[in-house]
């Protein structure tokens, strides 16, 4: 399959082409820019939902049921399930499909597992590219699922139109532990496995957090109780998501949010490109090892060392040695 053929098939709605395109973009294989350029001409209609929560909270089951719920009202759903790569071997175990059996063969649902890898430019950007592909392919609902650990995972769901934070009774201090990063970004809080004992406690704690963190916000995150394994509470959850969507659109926040996201992405991409562009030059021009030695021997401080490097590269650029292509 060459790229033109791939893009043609993609436009015709071939799942095989979509899958290949995702791999090419994810791997940054030659031609990925062409694909991004092509799909950027369309899309923008998919509504992006981020789902995160601690391990064992039943996220995958919840996503499974949520997707099923959207299917039953005629929406096509694309799912990106992100799991961490091992920092030691680079390998990853992607097991979310195990909990998504019910929807796995539905023709209107597409599930793609994604490993966090050591993505240059951040996992978030890579996941956004995949979501862009799903959007261009015509999925009306795009669900991004991650484990609520690590900044890059949090960044992914933060970038969604609606962000759902899943809690579960009995996991003890999880809410406490997550308070710092997770709790401020939720638009909807779900207490899954709400048939277990301890629901009231979780609800009380969430309530407290919402009162504290969202006291001045115009959108007060609702708390939805679900038993995803039995499909309970899913209709309510979908209703809450639509309510949030309406809120965003009524307040003019929807386009504002998306705009901000694109701007943010642009800035990140520029700095990535700059770094990528200059980093070989750094290795060329200065010995990082020598500088590090100096810092260790108290002959130089970190900031001065960094400044010296940048200055020497900029000098090079003024001489015409480094070009910024436009």
């Amino acid at each position: 399959m060459d790229y033109d053929e791939l893009i043609q098939l993609f436009k015709e709605g071939s799942y095989r082409a979509l899958s290949r395109a995702i791999s090419i973009v994810e791997n940054k294989e030659p031609g990925f820019r062409k694909i991004i350029a092509e799909i950027s001409r369309t899309g923008g209609n998919g509504y992006i939902i981020g789902v995160t929560g601690p391990p064992g909270s039943g996220k995958s089951t919840l996503v499974n049921e949520l997707a099923w719920g959207y299917r039953s009202i005629g929406k096509r759903v694309g799912i990106i399930a992100v799991d961490p790569s091992s920092p030691f071997t680079g390998g990853a175990f992607l097991g979310d499909r195990v909990r998504m059996q019910r929807i796995a063969t539905d023709k209107g649902i597409y599930i793609r597992s994604m490993a966090s890898r050591g993505h240059l430019g951040g996992l978030s950007a890579a996941a956004r590219n995949v979501s862009r592909l799903l959007d261009a392919f015509g999925f009306e609902i795009i669900i991004m699922e991650t484990v609520g650990v690590g900044q890059s995972e949090v960044d992914i769901v933060k970038a969604a139109d609606t962000t759902i934070i899943v809690s579960v009774p009995g996991l003890g201090d999880d809410i406490q532990a997550n308070k710092a990063g997770l709790m401020e970004i939720g638009n909807i809080f779900v207490i899954n496995k709400a048939d277990l004992t301890g629901v009231e406690r979780v609800e009380m704690e969430l309530d407290k957090i919402i009162k504290m963190a969202y006291h001045s916000a115009s959108w007060k995150p609702p708390i939805i109780k679900t038993v995803a394994s039995r499909g309970e509470g899913i209709t309510e959850l979908i209703e809450a998501i639509s309510k949030h969507e309406r809120y965003l659109k009524d307040e003019g926040l929807f386009s504002q949010k998306r705009r901000g996201r694109i701007e943010e992405e642009l800035v990140t991409l520029i700095s990535d490109h700059l770094f990528e562009h200059f980093s070989p030059k750094i290795e060329d021009k200065v010995s990082l090892k020598a500088l590090t030695d100096k810092i260790i021997n108290h002959e130089l401080d970190l900031y001065s060392a960094a400044e010296a490097v940048v200055e020497s590269i900029l000098k090079e650029k003024d001489k015409g040695g480094v070009k910024i292509e436009t």
């Binding site: 390998g91 990853a92 992607l94 097991g95 499909r97 063969t105 599930i111 793609r112 597992s113 490993a115």
Partner: peptide, 27 residues
Amino acid sequence: RDAGMEVIYTGLRQSPEQIAQAALQED
């Protein structure tokens, strides 16, 4: 996984259709 690959596990009781579908989606 320890050899650096990304492994997608489907769980038990997969029909050939489910397996083929997963292989396609996961490329």
